[in-house]
């Protein structure tokens, strides 16, 4: 029964994606990305394909993150505003089933987006690196999706939720480099309490955030450096972090007086 409810909810999310023309925008972004890639290819004198594939991969990754996150947030915020969440929860359905149904639906939408982008990249890179890149993009989107669900459940409004997701994404993508900066000679030799505080805060942030900088690397496409080790890392990090964010979302959802 619960499984059926989960799949029904997931199917509705996919239908919603089609009806809100989510995939039409995705295809438009693809066309835009390909056009810009052609232009970039005209500028490059050597390594044209490497420049094109890395540029297109970065453009598609950021577009996917932006689109999927906005879709998740607006979909959930709308449910709060038009009170359809009350309707769902008035049915004989556990809150965890509602959460799982929505999450599975968002994961499917993220998967379809990653797959579409991966197929386009095949014209610039071989199938194995593209496969790894696509899977990693899906995992990255899963983390972003779960974070978006948590923020939408917490803030109930698009601007606040999206700002937090964006901040989270930028931090998770650059925290490793930030940590290296704090370990550099400039901060290591500084003895003021504020320098120490910054250094400690960054170290703690690095412990709490997912290591997204190891996900969806353009290097895999350009130099074919992706390996099974990368795949396992991406898979493990996604499993752990999606579990953590889901627990936080469920905690919040069960406490809500709906």
């Amino acid at each position: 029964m619960a499984i059926q409810q989960i799949f029904t909810l997931a199917a509705y999310v996919v239908v919603e994606a089609f009806r809100t023309r989510f995939f039409a925008i995705i295809v438009t972004l693809l066309a835009l990305g390909l056009g810009l890639t052609r232009f970039v290819g005209q500028v490059a004198i050597i390594e044209t394909q490497a420049v094109q594939s890395s540029w297109l991969a970065a453009f598609l990754r950021l577009s996917a993150m932006y689109m999927v996150s906005l879709f998740v947030i607006t979909s959930l915020v709308r449910e709060f505003h038009d009170h359809s969440i009350y309707l769902w929860l008035s049915l004989p359905m556990r809150r965890s089933s509602y959460f799982l149904g929505k999450s599975v639906g968002f994961a499917l939408v993220a998967g379809m987006t990653a797959l579409l982008f991966g197929v386009v990249l095949l014209s610039y890179a071989p199938i194995v690196p593209v496969g790894l890149w696509t899977f990693s993009l899906w995992c990255e989107l899963l983390i972003v999706t779960t974070m978006s669900v948590l923020c939408a459940l917490t803030f109930h409004q698009t601007i606040g939720a999206f700002s937090v997701v964006l901040g989270f994404y930028i931090l998770a993508r650059s925290i490793n480099a930030m940590q290296l900066m704090t370990q550099g000679p400039l901060l290591q030799n500084a003895h003021s309490w504020s320098d120490h505080l910054i250094s400690e805060s960054v170290t703690w942030l690095a412990k709490l955030l997912p290591h997204l900088e190891h996900f969806t690397q353009s290097e895999w496409l350009v130099y074919q450096t992706g390996s099974l080790e990368n795949l396992v890392f991406v898979l493990m990090q996604t499993a752990i972090y999606v579990m953590l964010l889901s627990a936080m979302s469920l905690f919040d959802l069960y406490r809500k007086n709906l």
């Binding site: 890395s54 540029w55 970065a58 930028i170 650059s174 480099a177 900088e213 969806t216 353009s218 350009v222």
Partner: peptide, 10 residues
Amino acid sequence: RVLSLGDTVV
């Protein structure tokens, strides 16, 4: 590196 958001190649 920080501004590259983890993708220094691009």
